[in-house]
């Protein structure tokens, strides 16, 4: 540690040394670049300012709140309030309007469709498909075959309270397990009869008279004569070519023997009333209401 650094210049590089020497090896003095140092100083000053303005240092029973009074939860609450306010003119109109008013007012309908589409993608698409195409046991919404009714009010009620959901006001329809009520032969006949109703091929063993009698006794109470279905009970129309649980005989046998009870959650509470209203408009637009009662 002897001698000032500037006195000792390294012959090979022309750079000053620090004066440190270990066994004849001397250390070159290459200071940090100025730009680097200034950035360090600037960020240090910034950090001090940050500590003063924002919540920073933990104390005994809390933390320094910062003079700006900022909190992440407060910030998101504020942002959400802004969003609500931004949408307010349209959402409050939608909230107050009846379905017939929404349908008539092109501007309101367009807004409902847009909001409905966004909510559908987030909440409904996992089960009913991105385009509402449905899947096995999850109804296709692109047709106008509405199990629980296709009016806007009916769709709204379905979305609000669900089907066989945990909500007390849920829609409930029961397709019983006929394995305990009918014997194998009778179930086989019914399966054929149901296929016949839907315009599908039947087996040679099918006896039309027996099938009709059994259908009249066991099924017509819910599915109506001729299998046209009943939206009051959520009993699907069997006389069309739309099959929720499969149209092959094995699937129908399974449906008859064990019953079916697919479930749709209640969205009341999870989604606000306006969103559910918008969703109803959107969902109805998917399938149309040509034959919807």
């Amino acid at each position: 540690m002897s001698g000032a650094p500037h006195e000792d210049i390294d012959a090979h590089t022309g750079t000053a040394t620090t004066g440190h020497e270990w066994d004849g090896i001397r250390e070159l003095n290459t200071p940090l670049p100025k730009w680097w140092l200034y950035i360090l100083y600037a960020t240090t000053v910034w950090a001090i300012g940050y500590i003063i303005v924002y919540p920073a240092i933990p104390l005994i029973s809390g933390h320094t709140p910062g003079i700006a009074g900022w909190t992440s939860r407060g910030a998101v609450t504020q942002e959400l309030a802004q969003l609500t306010q931004q949408r307010a003119p349209m959402t409050s109109a939608l909230e107050k309007a009846s379905f017939s008013e929404i349908t008539k007012d092109e501007r309101m309908r367009t807004f409902a469709l847009a909001q409905g589409r966004a909510a559908f993608g987030d909440n409904c698409a996992p089960c009913h498909g991105a385009g509402g195409g449905g899947a096995f046991s999850f109804p296709n919404l692109n047709d106008d075959d509405w199990i629980w009714g296709g009016s806007l009010e009916a769709i709204q009620q379905t979305i609000q309270y669900g089907i066989r959901s945990t909500h007390p006001d849920t829609r409930v329809g029961i397709m019983p397990a006929f394995a305990q009520i009918l014997n194998t032969k009778e179930i086989d006949q019914l399966a054929n009869h149901v296929r016949a109703l839907g315009g599908l091929t039947t087996e040679k063993t099918y006896e039309k008279a027996l099938g009709s009698r059994l259908f009249g006794e066991q099924c017509a109470a819910c599915h109506s004569d001729g299998g046209k279905g009943n939206i009051e009970l959520g009993a699907p129309n069997l006389a069309d070519s739309i099959w929720l649980f499969g149209s092959d005989k094995a699937s129908i046998l399974q449906t008859l023997a064990r019953g079916r009870a697919s479930m749709m959650p209640a969205w009341n509470g999870r989604l606000d009333d306006t969103t559910i209203k918008a969703l109803s408009v959107y969902v109805q637009s998917l399938g149309g209401v040509k034959t919807a009662p």
Binding site: N123, P126, C127, A135, F136, S137, F138, T166, S262, M263, M264, P265, R270
Partner: peptide
């Protein structure tokens, strides 16, 4: 409670 049990199973 967002989806049905059946959905989760499948």
């Amino acid at each position: 409670a967002k989806y049905s049990d059946e959905w989760h199973k499948q």
